[in-house]
């Protein structure tokens, strides 16, 4: 039951992008086509889950026993950037097609604040390792949901006559706002 609460809470109620404002750069950067948006979602799912596990273990068995929690930010960002690098090298060797598909999204992952944000949240909310994994997976599903929805709307927006001043970024912002408004309807479920 507690896992269902975590999943619904992370995917719908506290959607990481539309309610918590994390990972906005990829939301606006790679949401022009549904296929690239889904690819980005897959990459985030993978890196976010692994990063949460590694940072969880590091802070429980290294930072806390030695009382050096003030190094949390530096440690986490180093773990994430080396992890991203490692994933890139491994994928290139093991599965070239997947590597090709993810392309530029992998290196960009380092500066995706959703990854660091979720890693810090897992620690701040005192979750267990398993809860943390579920938390990370459902947050990345929430991310994918938001970015794919926005990409779908943007694909249709190409066919619409938009007022001159609102063309480009402004209309995307307002669209994301309306999407967030829709997601607010889920508030109170859990």
């Amino acid at each position: 039951m507690e896992y269902i609460v975590i999943i619904i809470g992370a995917v719908l109620v506290n959607n990481i992008v539309l309610a918590q404002f994390l990972g906005l750069c990829p939301l606006f950067g790679v949401s022009s086509k549904i296929s690239t948006a889904a690819g980005m979602g897959g990459a985030v799912l993978f890196v976010m889950t692994v990063a949460s596990i590694v940072t969880y273990l590091l802070s429980t068995f290294l930072l806390e026993p030695f009382n050096i929690m003030y190094l949390q930010t530096i440690t986490y960002i180093l773990v994430i950037s080396s992890l991203v690098q490692m994933v890139e090298i491994v994928l290139k060797k093991v599965s070239p097609p997947l590597y090709q598909a993810l392309g530029i999204f992998l290196p960009l992952m380092t500066t995706n604040c959703a990854i660091l944000g979720v890693a810090i949240l897992v620690f701040q909310q005192d979750l267990t390792l398993l809860q943390g994994v579920v938390f990370a997976i459902s947050h990345s599903i929430g991310f994918t949901l938001a970015i794919v929805l926005l990409a779908g709307i943007r694909e249709h927006m190409d066919l619409v006559n938009i007022p001159k001043g609102m063309k480009g970024n402004p209309i995307i912002m307002v669209t994301a706002g309306l999407l967030a408004l829709a997601f607010m309807g889920f508030a109170g479920i859990v």
Partner: peptide
């Protein structure tokens, strides 16, 4: 709340472009 942030920024960007 969250949706207002997106909408307000959208209109501010439009204003700045103008």
């Amino acid at each position: 709340l969250a949706p207002g942030a997106f909408i307000a920024l959208g209109y501010l960007i439009a204003l700045m472009n103008k």
